[in-house]
């Protein structure tokens, strides 16, 4: 990370919980629990974590879309808009809507739900882009859309077909092209390649990287697949039970992971040409509605100490880019 890189999205002790009332008992799901992030311009930031660690909720919160039962409990979320830092949680619904697509866009996991199955792809484009481009006519919208589609190497007739006529991989790429069509500064992807076959996944990842290079914008990508992260991300945040437990550039995460959870994750990955036994993390991930005290990883951690059971460790800055929240590091 060079010094000059601007922070484009910043969160400050962000807390976002689901507050549910189940049969009279109140249940609080601590999905995003005290997350402080700084995401730079012109980078791909990967968020890795298992199912139920709160990563999708974190993305929704970063996208500034919080709908009940999800609630923003505490903390701030800033976007850098026209070189000015804006606290976007206080914006009106209309202002939030304006930011979407133009400033920040979302790539969902299942691309089938994006497109209306009974209208052609260009109809969906018109709906999405038309609501954001004031005073421009249909031709202008299609010109923008066509340009982007050709730039990204998709066949130009994709606009004139129905969603079901495209293969899953093609549909996902069209979805990404749609998300990129208004040159957003930030693109957020929630497992954008997970449902795809490996070869198709490779094509989609290739395309995401192309877009990022072309637009010099920021992509925040969530996936549980460390292999995908190794391939695309510049920096990776490891999420566990609603918290970012470790954050570092990709090489550092894979070569010198410091948090025991990250170490387990990296070491459990099978590699070609190496058949030595790999071990899983013992135990099971905790429920976000019923977190253990102290560090949420302590029941599964082989290096657990007394203090881990009582208190959540602060985030320690190991060097400029490497942050870890673990008592082992704190005390060393």
């Amino acid at each position: 990370m060079s010094e000059e890189k601007q922070v484009v999205l910043r969160t400050d002790h962000l807390k976002s919980f689901y507050v549910l009332d189940m049969q009279g008992t109140r249940k609080i799901v601590k999905a995003v629990n005290d997350v402080t992030l700084e995401i730079y311009e012109d980078e791909i930031y990967g968020i890795a974590g298992e199912s139920g660690c709160g990563k999708t909720t974190l993305l929704k919160t970063l996208f500034n879309e919080i709908v009940p039962p999800q609630r923003l409990i505490d903390g701030k979320l800033y976007y850098r808009i026209n070189s000015e830092e804006v606290d976007v949680t206080t914006l009106s619904a209309e202002e939030k809507r304006r930011l979407r697509m133009e400033y920040i866009s979302y790539i969902p996991q299942g691309s089938m739900s994006v497109f209306n199955p009974v209208i052609k792809i260009k109809g969906t484009y018109e709906d999405f882009i038309g609501s954001h481009v004031d005073g421009k006519n249909r031709e202008e919208i299609f010109r923008i859309a066509r340009e982007r589609i050709l730039e990204l190497g998709l066949p130009k007739n994709v606009l004139d077909v129905y969603p079901h006529q495209l293969s899953g991989g093609m549909r996902q790429r069209v979805t990404i092209a749609l998300a990129a069509s208004l040159d957003p500064r930030i693109m957020i992807g929630d497992e954008p390649t997970t449902a795809l076959d490996v070869v198709v996944q490779r094509g989609v990842i290739q395309m995401l990287k192309d877009i990022q290079k072309k637009l010099k914008n920021t992509i925040i990508m969530v996936t549980h697949d460390m292999g995908v992260h190794a391939n695309v991300a510049d920096r990776i945040g490891i999420m566990y039970a609603g918290k970012i437990v470790e954050e570092a550039p990709t090489e550092t995460i894979f070569e010198e992971p410091r948090h025991p959870y990250t170490q387990f994750l990296i070491n459990s990955l099978p590699k070609f040409g190496d058949k030595s036994t790999r071990e899983s993390v013992p135990g099971s991930p905790p429920s976000l509605a019923d977190l253990p005290t102290g560090c949420p990883f302590h029941p599964r951690c082989p290096h657990v100490k007394d203090i881990c059971r009582q208190q959540m460790p602060e985030t320690t800055q190991l060097d400029k880019n490497h942050k870890v929240a673990c008592w082992l590091v704190e005390e060393a």
Binding site: V198, V199, V228, A230, T250, I266, F272
Partner: peptide, 26 residues
């Protein structure tokens, strides 16, 4: 070969350098 090379390797040093051609309709 293609399938083997398309598995994302959990090693940032083994990133893909070349591009792939995707299937026509299945």
């Amino acid at each position: 070969k293609l399938l083997r090379d398309s598995i994302p390797q959990a090693d940032p040093k083994l990133r893909w350098s070349d591009t792939v051609t995707l299937a026509e309709l299945e």
